[in-house]
Lab assay of single mutants.
Amino acid sequence: MPSETPQAEVGPTGCPHRSGPHSAKGSLEKGSPEDKEAKEPLWIRPDAPSRCTWQLGRPASESPHHHTAPAKSPKILPDILKKIGDTPMVRINKIGKKFGLKCELLAKCEFFNAGGSVKDRISLRMIEDAERDGTLKPGDTIIEPTSGNTGIGLALAAAVRGYRCIIVMPEKMSSEKVDVLRALGAEIVRTPTNARFDSPESHVGVAWRLKNEIPNSHILDQYRNASNPLAHYDTTADEILQQCDGKLDMLVASVGTGGTITGIARKLKEKCPGCRIIGVDPEGSILAEPEELNQTEQTTYEVEGIGYDFIPTVLDRTVVDKWFKSNDEEAFTFARMLIAQEGLLCGGSAGSTVAVAVKAAQELQEGQRCVVILPDSVRNYMTKFLSDRWMLQKGFLKEEDLTEKKPWWWHLRVQELGLSAPLTVLPTITCGHTIEILREKGFDQAPVVDEAGVILGMVTLGNMLSSLLAGKVQPSDQVGKVIYKQFKQIRLTDTLGRLSHILEMDHFALVV
């Protein structure tokens, strides 16, 4: 994948999101292997301009796509893939009243899908469409860049269908997702969380590099694949309309690839034109409109599966009536509230959605109805927002919020430890010299600072030695090549209790 991002070429006709291997024109390309080798690009942008032909009021008969309808489940399912879809609609009884809503608040519980998330729908649909058009064949390999849930859905379907599955996901995604993927037989590649989507090191860039190296491999490409919004247009939206008897006044959905909100909203605009569509985008993402909503100094966020630093091709923002931004604290607070007060075992993005819903639905009156999409299960986040310690460490809970008995030293300040200034190293000294210094002084790690004293990161003896043994660096290389740029900081005025929580999850903390 090139470091400079080429513009994806656009073909003359058809839909841009065809499933299957992508040609340089962004659509299915038939021909000899030699032709494909000559024409197939190194990668295709996940934010390529959409060429979708959908228009409100256009006859369904003019759609270029294969459409399906929700099917009634048999008493005995032939395999677990038949437990994807037909998820329950559940009334939220307490939270709406707590925040003064007059309307009825309903939750579409997508964590009841077989793999635990709304992404099971698009995973199965992308595979079925690729099999139907002859792209996927027995023994082929599926590769997908994902925040985890699409990966789980694909790995689940691949396990049943017999495909090899490789999932490329950023490091910030939970260990629970990784464990589930491994249990399903998927191979996992992790990428830096802070890598831009168009960087060769991003999950998108690495996935395309693997595709170019592995024979008979395919990126189904949830960011561009029409099967993504079509899955929701054909099934999720129809289920909502049936469950609500066609009567709903507002739908609120958090947005990642945009397939969920695009597919549902398009069908609702056709069948229930008075329904307002509300999009939820986390602070630090750029999906919301108008652009002024996205202006923030924050560039990272903890909530998973929603928000991006690019506009995915499948996201149709014209069908969203209003956007709201959400933050991590309210997302996790509301997710825990949904679990504790409503018994809905949902993930953090569901918290984002409901946090926005109780604001947006203030305009609705008694007798009206708001539906929220709860995308995934708490299963993926047992060591994250479900953990009091994690919430404390991230600053989303305060010590006084917890009532468990603490040891005698818990409320003492870090400054009472009488710490001395640490050994520091410059980023320009060599790895070999740094190892000598650390061994001589008896230290395992040291902060790396520039000549102005600005902290650049941390270097550890173990990481340097393993990097040297693996051949990633040489003793003569500058130590700046092996620094940890993500590390926890703590102030002298913070409590030892807070430091204790940090050290339970990290090997060190830097006192500043």
Results as ranks from 00 to 15, higher is better:
D133I: 05
N212I: 06
N225D: 01
G31P: 10
P273A: 05
G26S: 10
G256E: 00
N216I: 07
F99I: 15
T191Y: 02
D79S: 15
Y223P: 06
T146S: 03
E176R: 03
K271W: 08
P74N: 06
P16Q: 07
S123P: 08
S73Q: 13
N113S: 14
S117M: 04
L77D: 06
D221I: 02
G263C: 00
I84R: 08
G256P: 00
G85V: 13
S199D: 13
L136D: 00
S73G: 13
S32C: 03
R224L: 04
A155M: 07
S202V: 02
R125L: 05
L56H: 09
Q243S: 05
S217M: 01
E62F: 07
P229T: 05
T235H: 04
A183G: 14
M126T: 06
K108I: 00
L241C: 05
C109K: 03
P21R: 06
A226N: 10
A8T: 10
K30G: 11
G57T: 11
K172N: 05
G258K: 01
L28W: 06
K97F: 15
L268I: 10
L77R: 07
V206H: 01
A265N: 06
A183S: 14
A237L: 03
C15N: 03
P74F: 08
P78A: 12
A159K: 02
A207L: 00
A69N: 10
T262R: 01
T235E: 14
H65A: 03
A48D: 11
P78K: 09
T235G: 13
D179V: 05
L101H: 00
E62M: 14
L241A: 09
P145S: 04
A253R: 04
F197Y: 07
Q55V: 12
R196P: 10
C275R: 00
E37Y: 15
S174H: 00
V10R: 11
D86S: 10
S217K: 05
I122L: 03
E40Q: 11
K137E: 09
I44D: 11
V204Q: 08
T262W: 03
K25L: 12
K269P: 01
I44M: 13
D47F: 01
R224A: 09
G151A: 02
T260N: 06
K108D: 03
L268G: 01
D221L: 02
R91N: 14
I219Y: 05
W54A: 06
N194S: 13
P170K: 01
V189L: 11
C272K: 05
K39N: 14
L210Y: 03
Q222R: 02
S32M: 05
T191S: 05
F197I: 07
S73K: 11
R45E: 11
G31D: 15
N216G: 05
D35I: 11
S123V: 02
K211N: 14
T141W: 12
N93M: 02
I188A: 04
V168P: 02
G151K: 01
D47T: 06
T260Q: 00
M169H: 01
S123N: 09
P88L: 06
P21S: 14
L81E: 12
G20F: 14
F112T: 06
G274S: 05
R224Q: 08
S23T: 06
I95F: 09
L248H: 03
V204P: 08
P33Q: 11
T13H: 08
W208Q: 11
K39W: 13
A186V: 06
A253F: 05
P145C: 04
L220K: 04
W208V: 08
E37D: 12
R196W: 08
N93Y: 05
P229V: 04
K98A: 11
G153V: 01
R18N: 11
I44T: 12
Q7N: 09
V10G: 11
G134T: 08
R132V: 06
A159Y: 02
G11R: 10
S227N: 15
K72E: 11
R51Y: 09
A71D: 12
S254D: 02
G205H: 07
K247A: 14
R125F: 11
G116P: 13
P12V: 07
P16R: 02
L220H: 02
M250Q: 01
A253V: 09
I264D: 06
N194M: 09
I95G: 00
R209Q: 15
E40Y: 10
V178A: 11
